[in-house]
C-alpha cells in the first residue's frame, strides 16, 4: 500500500511539474491542483496506512492497540484540503480576471506590471 502511494505521489508530482512548466495559466493551475493533492497524499502516507484496523480506543483502555494508523495526519490533510480548495477557487477567478483584463493566458505575454523595453525611452 505504501509503495502504491509513493508511486502515485511521484506520478502526480511529475505530471504537475510538467503542467506547471507550460507557459499557460490554466495548465499551471491544473498542475497546482495535482501537486497540492500529491502533498496531501504524502501527508496521508506519513501517518502509515493499515487496512481494516480503525484507530479506535477499545472499551476500558486508555490508548488504541499498537499498530493502528495515526489519525492526526488525516486531520492535517482535512485542513490542507479545505485551505487548498479555497486557494484554488481564488486562483481560478484570478485566472478568469487575468484573461478578461489582460486578454491572454500566456504568462510570457503578461508584461503589464513589468513592461519590456521601457528603459530605452528617455
Amino acid at each position: 500500500m505504501g509503495t502504491l502511494l509513493a508511486v502515485t505521489v511521484g506520478g502526480l508530482v511529475a505530471a504537475a511539474v510538467y503542467l506547471m512548466l507550460q507557459r499557460d495559466m490554466l495548465r499551471f493551475l491544473f498542475g497546482l491542483t495535482l501537486i497540492s493533492n500529491a502533498a496531501n497524499l504524502l501527508i496521508f502516507s506519513a501517518g502509515q496506512l493499515t487496512a481494516g484496523r480503525p484507530p479506535l480506543v477499545p472499551e476500558g483502555a486508555k490508548a488504541p492497540d499498537p499498530g493502528v494508523a495515526n489519525a492526526l495526519p488525516q486531520a492535517l490533510v482535512l485542513t490542507a484540503v479545505v485551505i487548498g480548495f479555497g486557494l484554488f477557487a481564488f486562483s481560478l477567478v484570478l485566472t478568469l480576471r487575468a484573461y478578461t483584463n489582460l486578454g491572454t493566458l500566456r504568462t510570457d505575454d503578461m508584461r503589464v506590471a513589468e513592461p519590456l523595453g521601457d528603459d530605452v525611452k528617455a
Partner: peptide
Amino acid sequence: RPEQIDGAVKYVTLNLV
C-alpha cells in the same frame, strides 16, 4: 487595475508553490 492582476498572477502562483 490590469497591473495589479498581472502582478497578482505571479505573486499568487509562486506563493502557492
